[in-house]
Write a protein that binds this DNA or RNA. Structure first.
Length: 589
DNA sequence: ATAGGGTTAG
């Protein structure tokens, strides 16, 4: 399958090269703010770091008369942009203490500041100041709060707040508020609700604009539903809203991920006809698409092309190329790209390091990965959750269990907070090396703290127990899933079925298959392969024959592991070959 | 004249 896709992407290079890209140098608007009596304060020019900001603030509060509120506002905003959230809070407190007047602009900045700190609770606690000072709430304040709720994944709270604002007519939502809610929903997988809001807007007074359409189109693209995305594209065109570079980038990304290179080309020429030229994101999307298909040379050529046209690659462009080399196992080439990037004056970030560490781990060169891990802090960076998870997986893969545990301990003491993937990696690792007690002790700790209750984690534990000969314990956990409100998915059933098959309990396995069908969980290719291996293992060849006919009818086929198993069985007992029905063209693969 | 909130790539 990959081979076909690769050949489809070949023609993209000359095609892209045929573009002529115009770049106009952007001129930063001159912005200057001054106090009431001609004291010019240009916040943007004066404030380059936290010290500058605090010094300027101290100067400002001594001026008579005080600089105007927009100057204070601009200063706070500049500090927020520099992510000095704690400092913003203390300066705001200082303003209150000095009785410096505040207004809605100052307040909404401080509210936003709390939201960006992921302290939406503190943001809400500022609302009484509005009431006390007689400053009315407005759509910006509420929009900021909604965004803050989404940022902390409080989706229900965000939607409830939005609905209340509308129902109680507290404020009229504008395009931006709709956009915030729709983006929050779409990024968390609620594409249907996002679409409903679009339809609601079309009925109401606030008509959808380009931002709104872009959110909806991107949501469909992320769902790999390009037909729906393109139908929304046509709707917006019909309403006289021309798609822009963002729209095109979303669509191109969606098409690249589906390997639909012909359509990518069509879209690229359409956008150039509209005088919309590919930017660094467009090129990074194309480069990523090529890399994911193993065509890193073509990706490099697209990169040379973009540079020729005056579009400079950024850290993300280099990242996708590095990851492309790592995917092909050429981590040394990735390392060279990393060095070239540094030579060009682009500082690596934690992504760059995680990509390389992953590359080395996949090649089982864990020592090099560990060395890079050490370099991270030397550069003033911090390993994030992905870095830690990657290195732990790498350590388990080479059997360095003690070191993996040390890394986990380091996370617990210094952060980042382990997530669900971390726990899955640890549990899988323990079970893989037969450390059942270790695994169960971690699992029980997680249960007590109610940290992780997701089906994927339970799948790991059930599978681990089955593989370590503890079928009864696994089955008991499986039976209790509904008590903790978890629904088994296809993988849960597969690991249970495999557990039964390993023990020769084929009737129990079949009853589990009936159960999953009854609970409207459709068996997948893995389910069928697990059964075939079970029949083979216990020499139930005639049952296997019946089963394989059903399998072929469903369009399923052997995977590599079953095929290998079968070859071994046939070598021992050639007559098994006669028991295999011919699997015709119904096969999916 | 001035200031605050929304969309796309690893």
């Amino acid at each position: 399958m990959t081979r076909i896709l690769v050949s489809k992407s070949n023609a993209i290079i000359p095609f892209i090269s045929s573009f002529y890209i115009l770049r106009s140098s952007s001129i930063r608007p001159y912005s200057s703010l001054k106090g009431k009596v001609g004291v010019r304060i240009n916040v943007e020019n004066e404030v380059k770091c936290l010290d500058d900001a605090v010094n300027l603030f101290n100067r400002m509060v001594r001026m008579k008369p005080l600089p105007s509120l927009p100057v204070f506002c601009k200063l706070l905003k500049t500090m927020i942009n520099m992510k000095h959230y704690y400092a913003v809070i203390s300066l705001f407190r200082e303003m209150r203490k000095l009785d410096i007047p505040i207004n809605e602009f100052i307040l909404s900045n401080v509210i936003n500041n709390y939201c960006l700190m992921h302290r939406v609770d503190c943001a809400f606690s500022l609302l009484p100041i509005h009431l006390k000072s007689g400053i009315p709430f407005n759509v910006v304040t509420f929009n900021t709060l909604i965004r803050g709720l989404f940022a902390e994944n409080k989706v229900t709270d965000a939607v409830v707040l939005f609905k209340n604002l509308v129902r109680e007519k507290i404020c009229e939502p504008n395009e931006i508020m709709y956009g915030t809610v729709m983006n929050g929903l779409s990024k968390r997988g609620h594409t249907e609700k996002t679409l409903s809001l679009l339809r609601l807007m079309e009925q109401g007074n606030t008509k959808p604009n380009i931002y709104i359409y872009n959110v909806v189109i991107d949501a469909f693209c992320k769902d790999r539903n390009l037909d729906a995305a393109i139908s929304i594209l046509n709707e917006m065109k019909q309403k006289g809203i021309p798609p822009d570079i963002v729209t095109h980038n979303s669509l191109i990304d969606g098409l690249c991920k589906l390997g639909q290179w012909e359509k990518v080309k069509t879209l690229l020429s359409e956008m150039v006809n509209l005088n919309i030229y590919p930017n660094v994101r467009t090129f990074s999307i194309l480069i990523d698409g090529l890399c994911k298909e193993g065509k890193v040379e073509d990706a490099e050529e697209v990169m040379r092309h973009m540079i020729e046209k005056g579009v400079e690659p950024n850290i993300i462009t280099y990242s996708v190329i590095m990851d492309g080399y790592c995917l092909r196992g050429q981590v040394d080439r990735a390392r060279r790209v990393f060095d070239i990037m540094i030579d060009k004056g682009i500082e690596p970030n934690i992504f760059s390091y995680s990509i390389l560490i992953n590359g080395y781990c996949k090649k089982k060169e864990v020592a090099k990965a560990m060395q890079l891990l050490g370099e991270i802090s030397q550069r003033g960076l911090k390993p994030d959750i992905v870095t830690y998870n990657t290195i732990q997986q790498g350590l388990f893969d080479v059997g360095r269990i003690g070191d993996a545990k040390k890394i986990y301990a380091e996370m617990l003491s210094r952060g980042p907070v382990p997530n669900s993937s971390t726990h899955c990696i640890l549990l899988k690792g323990y079970f893989r090396y037969g450390l059942v007690e270790e695994a169960m002790s971690l699992f029980n700790k997680l249960k007590i703290n109610r940290e992780d209750t997701n089906i994927e984690l339970y799948n790991v534990v059930i599978n681990g127990l089955c593989k370590n000969g503890k079928l009864d314990k696994a089955h008991a956990i499986f039976e209790k899933l509904s008590l903790i409100g978890l629904l088994p998915d296809v993988r849960t059933y597969n690991v249970m079925i495999n557990g039964f098959c390993l023990q020769g309990l084929l009737d129990e396995a079949k009853s589990m298959l009936r159960k999953m069908k009854k609970n409207s969980c459709l068996p997948d290719n893995v389910t069928y392969n697990v059964f075939v291996q079970g029949f083979l293992r216990w020499s139930k060849f005639s049952e296997m024959r019946t089963f394989m006919v059903e399998m072929a009818d469903g369009g399923f086929s052997f995977d590599a592991s079953t095929a290998g198993f079968l070859v071994n069985v046939v070598r021992e007992n050639p007559s098994v070959l006669d028991m295999i029905p011919e699997l015709h063209s119904k096969n999916k693969y």
